[in-house]
Amino acid sequence: MTDLSPSGLHRRRALRAAAALGAIGALGLATTGCSGRDPAPDSTFVLLDGNKFTTAELKGKVTLVNFWATTCVTCVKEMPSIVATYQKYQDKGFETLAVAMEYDPPAWVLNFAQTRQLPFKVAIDNTGDVAKQWGDVKLTPTTYLVDKQGRIVKRYVGEPDFPALHRLIEELLAQQA
């Protein structure tokens, strides 16, 4: 018999949330390389200022594409490290693009970007199409590292190991375009 009382519903929701967090935690430890360096999908990103930016404009640069949300605790926690990574490598041909998920209220994204003075491009995926194009991203943070040729080198689900990420960025920056 199912307990439909408020406390019974609360318990079931709490159990589902705990199970989901456990699954996300397990995934957060996993990073996956993309075999054969698949090309990054042709995407058009709508930036906070209303301008558009395309995947084609990333070619020639090593790029971090981070799918995130203002309500994602890990996303908020890792953002200072993403900023530091951008600042460390921006002068060497490195780009960062933070893509807010479709369920993230645009006003919250704008406030987050302004109050934390995010120095890189921030886009809002209002329709969810960009997340679908990039492998049907549902979990945040999900981050892709793209080489100078526009190929996906690595995908991270959860917070990356930043020292290892920096080593990979340096390796990719050293390669010819």
Rank of each mutant, 00 (worst) to 15 (best):
D49P: 01
D49W: 08
N51I: 00
N51M: 06
T54F: 07
T55H: 05
E57K: 15
L58N: 01
G60W: 12
V62N: 08
V62I: 13
V62C: 06
T63N: 05
V65I: 11
N66F: 01
N66V: 00
F67E: 03
W68H: 02
T70Q: 03
T71A: 10
T71G: 08
C72Q: 05
T74G: 03
C75A: 07
V76N: 05
V76M: 09
V76K: 10
E78T: 06
M79Y: 07
P80F: 09
P80K: 09
S81W: 12
I82A: 10
I82Y: 04
A84C: 02
T85I: 10
K88N: 07
Y89P: 02
Y89C: 09
Y89N: 11
D91A: 15
K92T: 02
K92L: 12
L97Q: 01
L97M: 04
A98K: 04
A100S: 13
E102M: 12
Y103K: 13
Y103H: 13
D104M: 02
P105G: 01
P105L: 04
P105M: 04
A107G: 00
A107R: 12
W108I: 00
W108L: 08
V109Y: 10
N111R: 15
F112N: 01
A113H: 11
A113L: 06
A113E: 10
Q114G: 03
T115V: 12
T115W: 04
Q117H: 14
L118T: 04
P119W: 10
P119D: 06
F120A: 07
K121N: 06
K121Q: 11
A123V: 03
D125L: 02
D129Y: 03
D129R: 12
D129T: 13
D129E: 14
